[in-house]
């Protein structure tokens, strides 16, 4: 997940366990919370409902950025057309006034959506370190397919602690890896 991109890049010794089912994984996360084991990250092939609050993740601020991009689009379109049609190149369309607000609305709407969508997409890509030509280090290929993974940083949770945690919470397998 986005928040931990830097820690993965730093080259850490990671212990991770794989679960077959998201309910097992969720139960394990709750168990880790009870035992105060600091989870580095959780990986799943699809978004798991209710995982964010128990991992203690704060709400994403991406939508605030989206609102600002949208507002930027609104202003760009509206002020742009206002300038073009009243100052730069006034043209009479069908006897309407130069500053015809109803005619501006569809384009204002479109640019709002465009700016918000494109802006949020790029922000998300940059935050997650994604993009063309970027190769990502992946703990295990199957976490993009059918496995649910809990990962511990060995500097925070020792390998022994992590392994006993994995075997007691029903992980099907666990490994250690440097990323």
């Amino acid at each position: 997940m986005a928040e931990n991109t830097k820690s993965i890049m730093a080259g850490k010794q990671i212990t991770y366990g794989l679960y077959n089912d998201e309910t097992d994984m969720m139960a394990a996360v709750k168990h880790a919370n009870v035992k105060h084991l600091e989870i580095m990250d959780v990986f799943s092939p699809f978004p798991v409902h209710g995982l964010d609050p128990i991992l203690g993740l704060s709400e994403s601020r991406l939508h605030i950025a989206g609102f600002i991009y949208g507002l930027l689009g609104t202003l760009t379109a509206f002020l742009g057309m206002t300038w073009i049609f009243t100052k730069d190149w006034p043209i009479v369309f069908g006897g309407k006034p130069y500053w015809s607000v109803p005619a501006f609305i569809p384009i204002t709407f479109e640019l709002t959506v465009l700016f918000a969508a494109v802006g949020m997409t790029f922000t998300f890509y940059i935050l997650c370190g994604l993009g063309p030509g970027v190769t990502n280090k992946v703990l295990d290929d199957r976490i993009t397919d059918d496995k649910f993974c809990i990962a511990f940083d060995e500097s925070e949770v020792s390998r022994g602690e992590a392994e006993s945690f994995f075997s007691s919470t029903g992980a099907t397998e666990f490994h250690s890896k440097v990323l």
Partner: peptide, 12 residues
């Protein structure tokens, strides 16, 4: 609301 208004406004 807007589309109904705008088409009528535009066609005049």
């Amino acid at each position: 609301w807007f589309s109904q208004y705008m088409l009528i406004w535009y066609a005049n």
